[in-house]
Nucleic acid binder design. Structure first.
Length: 567
RNA sequence: CGGGCUGUGGCGCAGCUUGGUAGCGCACCUGCUUUGGGAGCAGGGGGUCGCCGGUUCGAAUCCGGCCAGCCCGACCA
């Protein structure tokens, strides 16, 4: 490619609406342009990167026996109704009607379509099958953000495994696990596998691959000592026991005018420290009011509550709903004496006494509360949020909490879809066996963004060679001088013949502009051809990642770069 | 969905309080000079001021409605 003919609209200034580093650099570097919230046009440079990422993914999927498909992005409502997700997906699914008035959806994922195809699986001899595609997904995210990190339309590699029994699924799952590790390694991503929630759709052994980044939206709990790693939605920790005192007090009501929060009560005369309070949250779950109790200084992880109860429809209760059932407003709520309302309590409250909680009467609280004596807990369930520095459950060392980007997710689906669609094969005895499925996803643009998040400097992107849009840029200084441009052209042909993706910067621009652009868009190796070096038969070769620059004889320019790539 | 903010040329912004038909930097085009880290001079092109309505002799500016985008929260296989 000749730069003078390429569409690479670099910008000198950051676009103001870009926050994440990857967003800023990809827009500034001429890789992306936004069309609307959560929808981006991918420009030629981006397409080159994306296609290299896709190649890496294909190679690794094929290595474990994957077969590539391409399924439609528009789906009939029927298949989604069949799996029950037409309702469940709610507003997140783009829906439309065709000219006949039939309900259609844009695919958010493809379990339904692949399951339909899997109906043609007949015999146990056909299994296992690994099917994948690289396809556009549509999700009407309530809040797209971070440029291409979270969008409403994006490319995903999704794959599905079909097995006879859970041992087979385990093996398919493990093979994907290995393939994913290889993929991320080749992309230059340090992806940590973490235990995760499989979400509302069920499944087990859910593992997310996480890349540490401040632009990430997930919190990962990580133990540097033993390697324990889990998504915050799933993580547990060991916490120190709290001494509640020698005297086991009785419940006593006391007035707390103006006290609305845990913090208020911790400084209130006659109140209690935050860890000696019971935090009472009220949720509306599947239309039923539920009390959720936590230690005063602990936060709730809603996903844990959702996973633990199996509730799909879950939200904080409105004040009127709370008032109607408990007779008080938030700020004075508690579970003591409450009957007929499910009460979920976090294990951090087990065995605690002499605690303070709301009295279910505005402006009053109770002290001397013994959790197990005074509260009819329906379910004990870990629902609390881990904080940095708490002890690891497996080794006791301090845990670290960091932000991360979810670059891949693998989980076992079980038989949910196979049952809904009737996907079965005959076993050796001729009996129909429902197949068991796994589901595995990688978001391409998000992975590219994650690479940029972790591979850049103050000047711009620093692509790993494997996915750089071009591996070499030949920067011709004085492209208006025939001899210099000719020398650049010859090198350009030589690099191409050596099979190295090269762009020739033949623009008549000042050196500073060319250097800055090359660094911004992140080409790993820059070969500078200028009149000064040419007099001595030399070019300058710069290694973007290492920051090194060497003068090399023109004749060695190709072999030198090949050697650098090999290192 | 709640809270905050913003829409003026391709990008970044000023002008709006105090109404008079749009300006700056970068980018772009032409010419000359310049050329190893975002050049200089001269000349030039490009904008329904997000949209609709209202007030007014006159609206980028004031008023109302709508739309879009960004940030925080909620939400999110």
């Amino acid at each position: 490619m000749r730069w003078s003919q390429a569409f690479i609209p670099t910008l000198r200034d950051d676009p103001t609406d870009a926050e994440a580093i990857s967003h800023r650099l990809l827009v500034r570097g001429g890789y992306l342009r936004q069309l609307m919230a959560g929808a981006y046009s991918l420009l030629p440079l981006m397409i080159r990167v994306r296609s290299k990422v896709a190649t890496v993914i294909r190679e690794e999927m094929d290595r474990i026996g994957g077969q590539e498909f391409l399924l439609p992005a528009v789906h009939p409502a029927e298949i989604w109704q069949k799996s029950g997700r037409w309702e469940i997906m709610g507003d997140e699914m783009f829906r439309l009607r065709d000219r006949k008035g039939a309900d259609l959806a844009l695919g958010m994922t493809h379990e339904e379509v692949f399951s339909t195809l899997a109906l043609e699986l007949r015999s146990y001899r056909d299994l296992p099958q690994f099917w994948y595609q690289i396809q556009t997904k549509f999700r009407d995210e309530p809040r797209p953000k971070g440029g291409v990190l979270r969008t409403r339309e994006f490319t995903m590699k999704d794959s599905y495994s079909f097995d006879m029994e859970s041992a087979g699924l385990d093996s398919s799952f493990d093979r994907h696990y290995v393939a994913y590790q290889r993929i991320f390694a080749r992309l230059g991503l340090d992806a940590v596998p973490v235990e995760a929630s499989s979400g509302a759709m069920g499944g087990s052994d859910s593992i997310e691959f996480m890349v540490r980044s401040n632009s990430g939206e997930d919190d990962v709990v990580y133990c540097g000592a033993c390697g324990y790693a889990a998504n915050m939605e799933r993580a547990t920790s060991r916490i120190d026991a709290i001494e509640d005192g020698a005297v086991h007090a009785e419940v006593e009501k006391f007035a707390t005018p103006g006290v609305r929060t845990i913090l208020d009560l911790s400084t209130f005369e006659g109140g209690a420290a935050r860890e000696s309070q019971i935090k009472s949250l009220v949720y509306m779950m599947e239309g039923e009011l539920t009390l959720v109790l936590l230690r005063g200084d602990h936060a709730l992880v809603e996903q844990k509550l959702q996973d633990g109860t199996g509730a799909i429809d879950l939200r904080p209760a409105h004040p009127e709903e709370i008032q109607a059932v408990l007779g008080a407003n938030p700020g004075s709520l508690g579970a003591v004496g409450v009957k007929g309302v499910p009460i979920v309590a976090d294990p951090a409250l087990a065995g605690r006494y002499n605690m303070v909680t709301g009295a279910n009467e505005d402006e009053f609280h109770l002290r001397g509360v013994d959790v197990e004596r005074d509260i009819e807990v329906t379910t004990w369930m870990d629902v609390r949020e881990i904080t940095d520095g708490e002890a690891c459950v497996t080794c006791g060392e301090p845990l670290e909490v960091f932000k991360a980007i979810e670059v891949g997710h693998i989980f076992k689906l079980g038989t949910k879809y196979a049952e809904a669609f009737g996907v079965s094969v005959l076993d050796e005895e001729g009996a129909a066996i429902t197949v068991i499925m796994g589901s595995y996803g990688i978001g391409l643009e998000r992975n590219i963004a994650a690479v940029v998040e972790t591979h850049h400097d103050e000047k711009g992107i620093v692509w790993p060679v494997a996915i750089a849009p071009f591996v070499v840029v030949i920067t011709v200084l004085r492209a208006d001088v025939t001899e210099v441009l000719d020398a650049g052209e010859r090198l350009y042909r030589d690099y191409q013949q050596a099979g190295i993706d090269t762009i020739l910067d033949d623009r008549v621009e000042r050196p500073g502009v060319k250097f800055a652009d090359a660094e911004l868009i992140g080409i790993p190796y820059r070969v500078t051809v200028g009149p000064r070096g040419l007099e001595n038969g030399l070019v300058e070769i710069q290694d973007r990642a290492r920051g090194t620059t060497e003068e090399i004889a023109i004749g060695d320019a190709i072999s030198h770069v090949i050697q650098l790539i090999g290192q």
